[in-house]
Simulated scan of single mutants.
Amino acid sequence: MGAHDHFHGHAQGGGHSHAAHAGAGERRLLIAAALTGIFMLAEVVGGLLSGSLALIADAGHMLTDFAGLALAWYGLRLARRPADWRRTFGYDRFTVLVAFANGLALFAITGWIAVEAVSRLAAPAPVLAGPMLWIALAGLAVNIAAFAVLSGGERNLNMRAALLHVIGDLLGSVAAIAAALVILFTGWTAADPILSLAVAALILRSAWRVVAESGHILLEGTPEGLDPRVVAEDLAGVPGVARIGHLHLWSISEGRPMATLEATPAAPDRAEAAVRAIKDRLAERHAIHHATVEIVAAAKAGESADG
């Protein structure tokens, strides 16, 4: 037997179901992107006419969201492409890149909102509360529709990032409505930038989680719920295996964990059986369906125990 045993490709089964989920997710993202893009234009006009920072900030956020939803849609389409000789793991990780980019975009937009809000607090500007209220109410309706479309889909990292954009828009509309009502009944225009800051803080907290999770995958960190020490100890107990070393766990994308490791079989002539037993154990107990196992002779294993 050769020095390496590789098991490439996706886990068997569920291919049709995965494609159906991806197709449904694409449609949901496309609808949400269309709703967001169309209403974004209305908010820009309304914000300029009314002088409302909350509306302009929400329109700017919706522009980022439109781009984010479009990217998420494209990410799902690209992820469906089969692996080829240049990208042997396929295009799954593109959806993680999209989620990471969307999270960074949310950081940028919240920073812009914060700067504008502080500027408005320092130099208050007049706000037409009536038009602002009606546009914000219409925006709320659009965002609720987009939220309903997306929330019924699969909750992978890419879809969660897209949904986060829509939730941010929804909160922005709620803040704009609240600010409009306060200004309408009290004339206190500071409510507009203050509520904009509150929404920015909520968006920032959620954006950090998306960036952290997607960044962890991009850095090939250990998948959530897996501990290399526990997995190594478990594999060491597989019949026919004398030693496990250099175990690495990471993910190509959310829900697609991978493993590489060295294994020393208990008997040299049982190497193939040991590899199969290791892969079966990884799949059955740890939901890892793609593993690369290198067989290491006992003498070499002893020499590299601390390597």
Rank of each mutant, 00 (worst) to 15 (best):
A267R: 15
F100G: 06
I278A: 07
A145G: 01
L204G: 10
E220F: 03
A34I: 11
A179D: 08
A148T: 05
H286I: 01
G75F: 11
L49H: 10
R27V: 12
A33M: 14
A161M: 11
S214E: 05
A138C: 13
A42W: 11
A32E: 00
A191F: 04
S173H: 08
R86I: 03
R209Q: 14
H290L: 05
L128Y: 09
G172F: 11
K279G: 13
A70F: 13
M132F: 04
A22Y: 05
P124S: 09
R209P: 01
W85F: 11
I109E: 10
R81Y: 04
V293C: 03
A129D: 02
A178L: 15
G68P: 08
R155H: 14
A298L: 10
S253L: 03
L71R: 08
R270H: 14
A19N: 11
E303M: 05
M1F: 10
H16G: 07
T189I: 02
D280Y: 07
R209M: 12
S52L: 05
L195R: 12
I113Y: 06
A11R: 15
S119W: 06
I56T: 14
E213Y: 04
S173D: 12
L140V: 02
V241T: 10
L69F: 07
V275F: 02
L29K: 06
W250R: 08
L184R: 13
Y91R: 14
I38E: 08
G51Q: 00
L150W: 02
